[in-house]
Design a protein around this nucleic acid. Sequence first.
DNA 1: TGACCAATGATAGTATAACTACCATTTTTG
DNA 2: CAAAAATGGTAGTTATACTATCATTGGTCA
Lengths: 234, 234
Amino acid sequence: MDGFNLALHQGLYVKDPTGSALGIKLLTHATQLLDELGLEQFTFRKLAERMESTEPTVYRYFENKHRLLLYLSTAWWGWQEMRLISGLAHIDGPQAKLDYALHLLTAPIPDTTPLPGVQGPVLHRIMVAEFPKAYLTKGVDAENQEGLFLGYKRFCSHLAQIITDLSPEFPFPRMLASTVVEASIVQPYFQRHLPRLTDLTPDDPGCSETQLATFLQRVIHGACLSPQLTSHLK
Amino acid sequence: MDGFNLALHQGLYVKDPTGSALGIKLLTHATQLLDELGLEQFTFRKLAERMESTEPTVYRYFENKHRLLLYLSTAWWGWQEMRLISGLAHIDGPQAKLDYALHLLTAPIPDTTPLPGVQGPVLHRIMVAEFPKAYLTKGVDAENQEGLFLGYKRFCSHLAQIITDLSPEFPFPRMLASTVVEASIVQPYFQRHLPRLTDLTPDDPGCSETQLATFLQRVIHGACLSPQLTSHLK
DNA sequence: TGACCAATGATAGTATAACTACCATTTTTG
DNA sequence: CAAAAATGGTAGTTATACTATCATTGGTCA
C-alpha cells in the first residue's frame, strides 16, 4: 500500500529514508514529534533525542525541517492520488467519481501506512496543521520549479478533471478544486480550534464528516451545475 | 480612516505602537520587512537594523514576531470589518450587500492606511502570505481564549450573516463564509506562485479580480440558492 | 532653576536552534 | 584481506530569541 514513487523528487531528501531501518525509524519519530510539537517547536535536535540518535544523523537524511515537511506533503498527496486513481478505476460516472474523491477528503483516514513507518492519521494531522506552511514561503517559486509541489498539484488536477467531466462548461474547475481541497483541510481544524468559523459540530466526529462532505458537494454542485443562477452577474 | 479600536486586545502588544512616533516608525519598517523577507526570515534584529534602532526597543512594543503577526492580522480584519460595516450602511438588500463584501475581498486594496504608518497594499500582501500561520500554531487555543482572533471571526460572522439573509434555510453559512474568505486570500497567491491550482490568468491583475469575484459569487449562490440540486445526496 | 521621576533607549549577555567540519566505525567490494 | 565507501558520533560555529541592566531624555513640581 505504501511505497509509490517518491524517488522522482530527489531534492526532497538528502538520503532516501525509506531505504534503511534507521531512516524509517526517523520517519516514525519525526511524524510523531511534529504532531506533538507543531512545526515551529519541532527541531532536529529534539528529534535526534527522541529517536536516541544524534543531530547530524538527521541532517544526513533531510537538509532541514522545511524539506522534511515538503517530503511528508509529497508523500501524503502522492498517497491520496494513488488512493484516488485506484478507487476511480472501479467507478463509472462523474458524479460517483466526485463522491469518491470527496470521501477521500472527508472520511476518517484508515490506519494504514502512506509511508513506511508512518500511520495515516498521524500524517493527516500534520497535513491539517502544517501543510499551508509548505507553500507559504519565500522559496515557493524555486521549490515549485524543482517540482516539489507536484503531488498536491496533481491531486487537485484530478479533482478539477472530475469537475470538468461533471460540467464541461464550468469556467473555474481548478479554482473550485483547490478551494474544496483547502476547505477539506482547514474546516476540521476550525472545528477543533476556531469553532465560530465553521458549522461542523464540535466533538461529534461521527457526524461532522458527512456534514463536511455534504457542504463540499453543495459547493461543487451549486457552483458548476447552476450557471443560470449567476448569469445576471458580470 | 485608521485607528479603530485595537486597544481592546491588550495582549497583542506590550506597548501600543500607535501611541508614539517611534512605534509608528516600527510598524512601517516591520510591515515592509515582513513583506520583503516573509515571516520565517524576518527577525527583530533585522527590523532593529532597518529602522536604525536596537532589538530591545522592538521587544518593548511586541513580545515576539508571532504576536506582531497577530497584531497586524487583527488590524487588517478590524479595518476590513470597518469598511464592510460602513459600506453596508448605505446598501439595501442581501444581494447588494454580498456584492459589496466580495468587492472588499477581491478588489485592489486602496492606498490608504489601515494602521498608522502602514499602507493597505503592504498589509494585504502580508496577510496573503502569512495570515494562516497566525492560527496554525500549537498556541491557537490559548490565543483564541485571549480573543486574539476576534477580528477575523467577526468579519467572517458578518459574511455568514449576509449569507443567512440571502438564504435563511442554508445550513452551513459559517463554513461557506470562511471558505470564501480563505479562497479570496489563497487564490491570488496561487495565481502568482502555483498557477496550476487556479484559473486566474497570470499577470492580468485587471481581469483576475472580477474572475475571482465571479467565482466566489457562483460558489455562494450555487451552494445556498439551489438546495434542490443536491437533495438527492445524503 | 534645578532636583526628581518616569519613560524611553542602548549595551551586553545567555540559551537555544540551525548547520557543519571532522573523526571513528562499520560495511562493502575488488 | 585490504582498500574504499558508507554510516554514525563528537565538537564547534553562527544566528536567533529573549533578557537583565545601565544610560539618557524629557517632563513635573518645589
